[in-house]
């Protein structure tokens, strides 16, 4: 994890500090992006776009200690936008995007998570990938703790449902 001081410097748009923060979360961010977008090229693009948005918005970060959560949230928004844009383009040009899944590791649970609505995916990644407590997620996301709980509950139920269906095949 990065030191709070470095985050504070980054919040003042110290570019070197911002790069340090992003590098510290590099693995988590890239893997989350990959899980979401399922190919290296798009995941790298998502990191680039996330860097750009972070630079623009870093001054809006309220709590330096939630920087990880904040980053993942931006990242997931970026992934979500890219995903949406992609489906739009595919529709318009009726293009088949082939070979998207080749050489990607077998990601069964990740696959299952990607079936969930956007905000539920966010919660799963926040909770399990970043090891955050419900109350922390609530304050980072600016939503009541009860909402976090109920959303997580719904998400988990859907996941279980997904797995039980698959097992029947």
């Amino acid at each position: 994890m990065v030191e709070i001081d470095i985050v504070k410097k980054a919040m003042k748009r110290n570019e070197y500090a911002l790069l340090q923060v992003l590098e510290a979360y590099e693995d988590a961010m890239y893997r989350t992006a990959f899980a979401y977008l399922k190919n290296e090229h798009d995941a790298i693009e998502a990191i680039q776009e996330t860097t750009y948005r972070c630079y623009k918005k870093i001054h809006t970060l309220k709590e330096p200690r939630y920087v990880g959560t904040w980053l993942v949230r931006i990242l997931l928004n970026v992934c979500h936008d890219m995903h949406k844009r992609k489906s739009r383009i595919e529709l318009r040009e009726t293009l088949e995007v082939e070979g998207q899944y080749y050489d990607s590791p077998k990601l069964e649970i990740v696959e299952a998570i990607s079936q969930l609505p956007h905000e539920q995916q966010q919660l799963i990644y926040l909770k399990y990938f970043q090891d955050l407590k419900n109350i922390e997620i609530a304050s980072a996301q600016n939503i009541p703790e009860g909402t976090v709980k109920s959303r997580l509950h719904t998400a988990l139920r859907k996941l279980r449902h997904y797995f039980s269906e698959r097992r029947e095949f």
């Binding site: 570019e15 911002l18 790069l19 992003l22 590098e23 590099e26 693995d27 890239y30 893997r31 989350t32 990959f34 899980a35 290296e40 790298i44 693009e45 990191i47 680039q48 776009e49 996330t50 860097t51 750009y52 972070c54 630079y55 590791p105 077998k106 990601l107 069964e108 649970i109 990740v110 399990y128 990938f129």
Partner: peptide
């Protein structure tokens, strides 16, 4: 966790992507 950790991270490409984004 294991699934995610098994994803290789292209460090160099990411470093370049961050610089470009910035």
């Amino acid at each position: 966790k294991d699934e995610l950790d098994s994803i290789p991270v292209p460090k160099e490409a990411l470093s370049y992507a961050r610089t470009t984004g910035l």
